[in-house]
């Protein structure tokens, strides 16, 4: 295979990472050899990053902030906190490693503050110690012309509890990857997500949960609603290693096509090497119930209001897993406000 011709975005990224070490060096090497991922790569077949990055050519700055201040590359969090990914226009990278010590309980509120034309690639490495509890509530409300690519790796020790609830409105391309190593033995993982995509927006949820020890529980529920000329992508994989007997894992993705011209692509996968497990996945796409819509309008609700109520009632469930009432209501209110504009 001959050398590839790099796009301006790729050249900028290669220059940006010149002389870098660790994961940055590996990332640079991958871009030098293969360029940014295109739809020809299996893992990116519905999210062509190279194509989406056209038009973004300059380097920018990105950083993680903890409770408003620039965060260290590596830190321990043992109390509720706010994490922010901030990125200005252009191509940038950011990274953070977070330890949640054994036995602590943390609610981490995470949000993205991106400028128009921001293309940050962010990496989070999160480790939960034994018996730790982390509730990570992610609000991904980003400008239409931005490209956030966020990859989280989460290591969940035994007896630990990891809960993630994500609310995403998409952008030119939003890629949200979560890769979890699940030790079982009393550990539990809950992955909840909601996406609402207006015309022209794209959001990709890609997750893997690898069960390495026995008796792990995983519950994943992703719900979405997609307008005309918008695209929702779900790639979910549960892997159960041979040692992970009596794993109990359930994956559900349900989405509404708000228009015939909406696109939703889903690939649920189970890869199981243990013989005594309960694993299931369900994937269902549908449209708004026209009969319910008429019923609501007959009672006096406008079409816009009736649709918004139907979509909200469909989408709300994954947010129920947020334990903090104020936080849950905050996200529900943001969702409701965005629904007022959806057609």
């Amino acid at each position: 295979m001959g050398a590839i011709t790099h796009t301006p975005a790729e050249k900028t990224l290669i220059d940006l990472l010149d002389g870098a070490e660790d994961w940055r060096a590996a990332a640079r090497d991958a871009v030098v050899r293969f360029g940014l991922p295109t739809k020809r790569a299996e893992a990116w077949k519905w999210s062509d990053l190279r194509r989406a990055s056209h038009g973004i050519e300059t380097a920018g700055q990105a950083e993680f902030r903890l409770n408003g201040a620039t965060a260290a590359d590596r830190l321990t969090i043992d109390a509720d906190a706010e994490l922010e990914l901030a990125a200005e226009a252009g191509i940038s990278v950011a990274s953070i490693e977070i330890d949640i010590p054994a036995g602590t309980r943390v609610v981490l509120k995470e949000r993205y503050s991106l400028a128009e034309g921001a293309f940050p690639t962010a990496r989070l490495e999160i480790t939960l110690g034994e018996g730790a509890e982390l509730e990570r509530v992610v609000l991904c409300d980003t400008p239409e012309n931005s490209i956030p690519v966020v990859r989280s790796r989460v290591v969940v020790a035994k007896q630990a509890h990891y809960r993630q609830a994500t609310l995403t409105f998409g952008s030119k391309l939003t890629r949200n990857e979560t890769h979890i190593t699940h030790a079982g033995e009393g550990a539990e993982v809950e992955l909840g997500g909601v996406y609402l995509l207006e015309e022209g927006r794209h959001a990709d949820f890609t997750s893997t949960v690898t069960h390495t020890g026995p008796g792990g529980v995983t519950h994943q529920l992703l719900k979405g609603a997609v307008a005309a000329h918008a695209q929702g992508v779900f790639q979910g994989k549960f892997k159960v290693e041979q040692a992970a007997q009596q794993t109990d894992a359930k994956m559900t993705h349900r989405a509404l096509m708000l228009d015939d011209r909406a696109e939703i692509d889903a690939k649920p996968e189970l890869e199981i090497y243990a013989d005594d497990v309960q694993c299931a996945h369900g994937n269902a796409l549908g449209a708004i119930d026209e009969t319910a819509l008429f019923y609501m309008r007959q009672r006096g609700l406008s079409e816009v209001k009736a649709r918004a109520m139907l979509i909200e009632s469909f989408l709300a469930e994954p947010l129920d897993m947020i334990s903090d009432d104020v936080l849950r209501e905050e996200l529900a209110a943001i969702l409701r406000q965005r629904l007022g504009a959806i057609r």
Partner: peptide, 10 residues
Amino acid sequence: FQYPVEIPGV
């Protein structure tokens, strides 16, 4: 309605 409609979540 002859068949009143169910609206889950509302």
